[in-house]
């Protein structure tokens, strides 16, 4: 069952994520992907995550597809204008990529090439609109394709955005993304199930499956760093404490993650696990959570 079919079915969805590295070495990444292959519905391939220059998501997504692993091709608007975005999308299609996650992308100043030109010719909403247009057999200028793609597009949302204006605007923008063609939603990492439940109530009516984001904590330091630097993430003090005091960080991390996954089973359509280097531990999380 492909990812699109899984989404359209009733099953509880599980996606994971791999991040291409700096350089041409991809062996480790492929091993991780192989390991996850049968346990997840798809694997996201990040696009120069955090604006750090790396191997591209298009190539890696293609390799995964070739190996029979269903990729979710992440595509940001940071580095490409509308010509490049459309062209890359056509390339992706012919390389066997079907799922696209449309993102605005981080600003270059946050990455390792802060002097780079931030493009943002389109944004996540207009990129989704673009994909929709392309699926209909046209480019943005209205020219007809000789052979059209049929992407399965998704989008993201940050349920932990600043309460008030920040969250309201996330929800409004989510609506716009859905209107622009998003067929599945993956969220930023969630740590507090109570507030996530509230968020899910707000988006109940949107009729698009939401996969709750789960980030695997590696240390108390990482948790604190994310709390202060990453918008929308607030790791509760209890989890930080558990990570700080544990003798077996992997064990504790898996326990926390699996607890979150278990909790989400009744709240949303699936989970998206971001292991950030600990991809090999994902199966443990799923087992602990009682999935498969």
């Amino acid at each position: 069952m492909g990812f699109k079919e899984a989404v359209e079915s009733e099953k509880f969805l599980v996606t994971a994520e791999v991040g291409p590295g700096k350089g041409t070495e991809i062996q480790g990444l492929l091993e991780d992907a192989e390991l996850l292959k049968d346990r997840v519905d798809a694997i996201n391939v990040t696009d120069l995550q955090s604006s750090v220059m790396r191997l591209g998501s298009l190539a890696v997504s293609h390799i995964l597809a070739d190996k029979g692993i269903e990729p979710v091709y992440q595509l940001t608007c940071r580095d490409r204008n509308r010509l490049a975005l459309q062209s890359d999308l056509l390339s992706a299609w012919v390389l066997g990529i079907k799922n696209v996650l449309a993102l605005t992308g981080d600003h270059p100043v946050l990455g390792d090439h802060p002097e780079a030109m931030p493009v943002f010719d389109l944004d996540s909403v207009s990129l989704l609109q673009t994909i929709k247009t392309m699926n209909s057999g046209h480019d943005l200028a209205g020219n007809e394709f000789n052979g059209a793609p049929d992407f399965f597009p998704g989008a993201v949302v940050n349920p932990g955005a600043d309460a008030g204006a920040g969250l309201e605007m996330q929800i409004i923008k989510l609506e716009k993304k859905i209107e622009a063609g998003a067929r599945f939603i993956q969220t930023q990492g969630v740590f507090d199930l109570n507030s996530f439940e509230k968020f899910m109530k707000r988006v109940e009516g949107f009729k698009v499956p939401v996969l709750g984001g789960v980030i695997m904590l590696k240390s108390a330091g990482m948790a604190r760093f994310m709390n202060s630097k990453v918008a929308g993430i607030s790791v509760p003090e209890a989890q930080i404490k558990a990570m700080a005091e544990t003798k077996d960080k992997v064990r504790t991390s898996v326990e926390i993650a699996s607890g979150l996954v278990r909790g989400m089973k009744d709240m949303c359509r699936g989970v998206h696990i971001m292991a950030i280097g600990w991809e090999k531990k994902v199966p443990m999380v799923l087992e602990e959570a009682g999935l498969k």
Binding site: T104, S124, A161, M169, K173, A231, G232
Partner: peptide, 29 residues
């Protein structure tokens, strides 16, 4: 807006400030 977004905020604002320059208010806010 640091990214010049015209369809709403990127979600990166923290406490109403832009993630790119912490002393700059998020335009969308």
């Amino acid at each position: 807006c640091a990214k010049g977004l015209t369809d709403g905020p990127c979600g990166g604002a923290q406490a109403g400030k832009c993630e790119v320059a912490k002393d700059t208010p998020c335009a969308w806010q």
